[in-house]
Amino acid sequence: MLALATLALMAGAAIAVQASINAQLGVLLHSSLLGTAVAFAVSCLVSVFAIAVAVRHYPTLATIQSVPWYLWCGGLLSAFGVGLFYFLIPRMGVGSMMSFALTGQILVAVVSSHFGWFDLPAKPVSLLRGLGVAALLAGIVLINWE
């Protein structure tokens, strides 16, 4: 579990750094949308390379067709969320933006886990988890208090 937690922390750190870099790219290019497009183009190239190197068995057409339509919408949500990151970071600062963004992620994750959305394991909201959410919200206030 410690190794997974370490990887998760590294993923969060990578997102904060890449968001800052790409937000500045958008500022210098005078378009947060262009910064988003560049980020996704590079991500696409890296993903295609990783697939070519790592994937040995590709899904069949029947498997692809069996995927529910709403599971194909992740890219839309990514473009929306990432585009907003690059738009808001130069206006709010990376600390404030990340604190609000992470709060949104955790709140939706808690609700999603409670109901077991997308066939993922259900983890009902408990008193302890509710206190954690309250502490998170208090942290957002303290981080952004001025």
Rank of each mutant, 00 (worst) to 15 (best):
70 Y>Q: 12
145 W>K: 14
25 L>D: 00
118 F>A: 09
48 V>A: 11
109 A>Q: 13
103 T>R: 02
18 Q>P: 02
29 L>M: 15
59 P>N: 10
60 T>I: 11
39 A>Y: 06
86 Y>W: 15
60 T>D: 14
128 L>Y: 09
140 I>M: 04
20 S>E: 08
54 A>W: 06
97 M>A: 08
113 S>W: 08
103 T>V: 03
89 I>K: 00
61 L>D: 09
146 E>K: 15
44 C>V: 04
38 V>W: 04
121 P>S: 01
3 A>N: 08
131 L>Y: 02
130 G>S: 02
121 P>L: 01
140 I>E: 01
74 G>Y: 04
84 L>I: 10
79 A>H: 02
72 W>E: 05
116 G>P: 11
17 V>C: 03
71 L>E: 12
139 G>S: 04
101 A>C: 07
31 S>E: 11
13 A>P: 02
119 D>T: 09
141 V>T: 07
60 T>Y: 04
36 T>Q: 01
30 H>N: 12
74 G>K: 11
66 S>R: 10
52 A>M: 08
123 K>Y: 03
69 W>G: 08
15 I>Y: 03
22 N>Y: 07
110 V>W: 05
5 A>F: 07
10 M>W: 04
11 A>H: 08
70 Y>M: 13
87 F>N: 07
57 H>S: 15
52 A>G: 14
138 A>G: 13
94 V>R: 04
107 L>H: 15
102 L>M: 13
130 G>E: 01
56 R>Y: 09
